[in-house]
Design a protein around this nucleic acid. Sequence first.
DNA 1: ATGTCCATTATATTAGGCAC
DNA 2: GTGCCTAATATAATGGACAT
Length: 375
Amino acid sequence: MEHSFTANIKSVLQKHFKRNADKVFDQSQLIQYINEKTRSANKGSKARSSFANLYAIYVILEDYISKGFHKKGNYAEYEGAVFNKLFTRQRELPFGSNLQNHALNNRMNSEFQKYFPSSEFIPILRKPETNRYWFNENLLKIKVGATSFNIASAVIDIISEYSKTKQDAFQRFIKTCEELQEIENLNPLKVHEFILGLLAPNVDARLFEIVSYAILKFFYHDQIIIWGFEMDKLNKENLKLYKTGKTNANDGGIDFVMKPLGRFFQVTETLDFKKYFLDIDKIQKYPITFVINSEESTKDLIKKIKDNANKVYSIKAIVDKYMDCIEEVINIPTLNERFIVAEKQGCLKAILDEIILQSRVEFSYTNSYDDSIKE
DNA sequence: ATGTCCATTATATTAGGCAC
DNA sequence: GTGCCTAATATAATGGACAT
């Protein structure tokens, strides 16, 4: 039942209930339920996290506390919290902007019941005629020996803590970016180091994609291509790199596209390109440039890809066709070089700005998160 | 406003297959 | 047979749409 966030839960309980903390944990089904729902807290950015049900608890308890019911005992007389207020509030919370009514109406209750089939208490009580909501106080009052503890504010703290943990990694990243943005004129070296540090095999895949995009965009942006339909009417155009969407929303799609050459770029961690070249033996495929999150030399990477293709297709003609579809392989050392080139052209600040911009979009981050969650 | 059903996308678990 | 890897399948957590 224990996972890495359990320690945080216990330390909050410690603060609230001192030596009775462990007993409260053992006695409270609500705390145990929250413990179950916070498993994802310290997992990587790809782990799916649960917010809806926790926030449903959060907003009702926030109402409960704001009216002082954790101190005085006439909650039974209370007319209940208004649906709309609760609903709006949960959407203000970090990551909660798209939450719907489900958790408040039945998902939290039904899931709780799944964990505690024998529990006699339904956590969220409501009166459909008036659209009012209550939290079942029986789950908030925990008896240890002769004393009864109200866990409402402890629960609020735990959920805040969870929410903060989920924000942390990324928020820290954005913060660092913003700090650098301010001192950038004074200390380009630091910015340089920082961005180089982001080019490592262990960084978050989405971040890697963003950083490679920012670097390549400014590496290409002042390269000029000359083209035209007639020899005496030639156009000059800068190479422009476009990002085609959010990383996560772009499964199977192409990550970057370059105008006017029409090159496709795909960022990847693996060398297994099968999915990009499905049915390669039957159909002509569009060539792709791969940006690979690896320190290995380009030569080795290409060799590995080829070995892989040989294993799968075994016929030389098809393997050649497969390899022809790989326009270029860009590894981490190449990105490093291109970063330095772009930097020499004075694009350091622009690259940093681009990283911040793309990150904000990618992680749906806005500054308003900062003050919406209880400190 | 709310219950319900469906879709999407992720993780977790299991089954099956392979090299040794 | 053991251990390991991958593919298939199940499960979970929402988001979205719609009828009422």
